[in-house]
Nucleic acid binder design. Structure first.
Lengths: 150, 150
DNA sequence: TTGGTTGGTAGCATGTTGCAACCGTCGTGA
DNA sequence: TCACGACGGTTGCAACATGCTACCAACCAA
């Protein structure tokens, strides 16, 4: 049903990523998972999403290998949803979205939640796109090498 | 209509970013814009999206300050859509999604489009989340500092 | 001036979302 | 051990968004 190729399952990795995540709710679920949410109810309260939608999203995230369902850590019979390694690899995506939001949608003095380095409590360094040899790259410094060109 | 708060317009920058972009199509439009697409028809052919949807998405992206509509560069009476500085700031988001896709959705030998450093033609360095003092951070090394905690 | 391209709009069928009500299981306090 | 509330869903339905197709008005080249 959700399955393959909502978008062209093209050779473009961006499209496949987008397809794999599914929708915005899924991305916010992943964000909450990074922030420590594990239980159905935690996600539901945090997001305010309808339960049937949450059920469906959790299922596709598990099916897609982003989350996995494990026995609850408190010993109860319930289950919890935790990020797989593949899910954890979405970290830069979430951080990038967060930094973009911080820069463009908040006034200088407007409060917002902040992602900090646990050791020192400082906010993070801005993400940088770097070349193989470490030069900082702007969009104009890059080009898409299409498959058909190869 | 698209307007505010499809999601809680919470204090979370991720949610605001997601809200500002709108939907997946919009993100793929931005990706194409980075790849050099400028004209309505270019986006339409590249994405295969219905024209009414594309019209709506371009409009909201322009309204949101991600794209701007400028006179066509070839002197014709048509218009083109180009990234604003705010739109260009989405670069790390696109790169992060691309790298995630490359790592998890392609076999080692499977061909895919590639983003390369224009100067040298090499692929890019993987994005890293760094602390203020340059240590590399994993998700577990970070914490969300909630507004209410402040 | 005619015909094709560009950049849309309009109408309609279908799919997806969100809401609310319901329900079985689990856990806890008495 | 029993009752009651929390947890984690499922179901049905109404509303909304999506995508398809047809249409159309500029623009531009011959």
């Amino acid at each position: 049903m959700v399955a393959r190729t909502r978008f062209d399952d093209s050779e473009c990795p961006v499209a496949r990523s987008v397809d794999a995540i599914g929708d915005w709710w899924s991305l916010l679920i992943v964000r909450d998972a990074f922030d420590g949410s594990r239980r159905f109810g935690e996600f539901q309260r945090s997001l305010g999403v309808a339960k049937n939608i949450l059920t469906a999203r959790l299922r596709t995230l598990v099916a897609g290998g982003v989350l996995e369902s494990v026995p609850a850590s408190d010993g109860s019979a319930y289950r919890e949803y935790v990020l797989t390694p593949k899910g954890k690899a979405l970290f830069p995506v979430i951080v990038a979205l967060r930094q973009w939001g911080e820069q463009h949608f908040f006034d200088a003095d407007e409060p917002h939640s902040e992602l900090v380095d646990r050791r020192q409590g400082h906010s993070l360094r801005a993400l940088e796109v770097l070349s193989a040899d470490g030069r900082r790259l702007n969009p104009d410094d890059t080009a898409v090498h299409k498959v058909s060109d190869q």
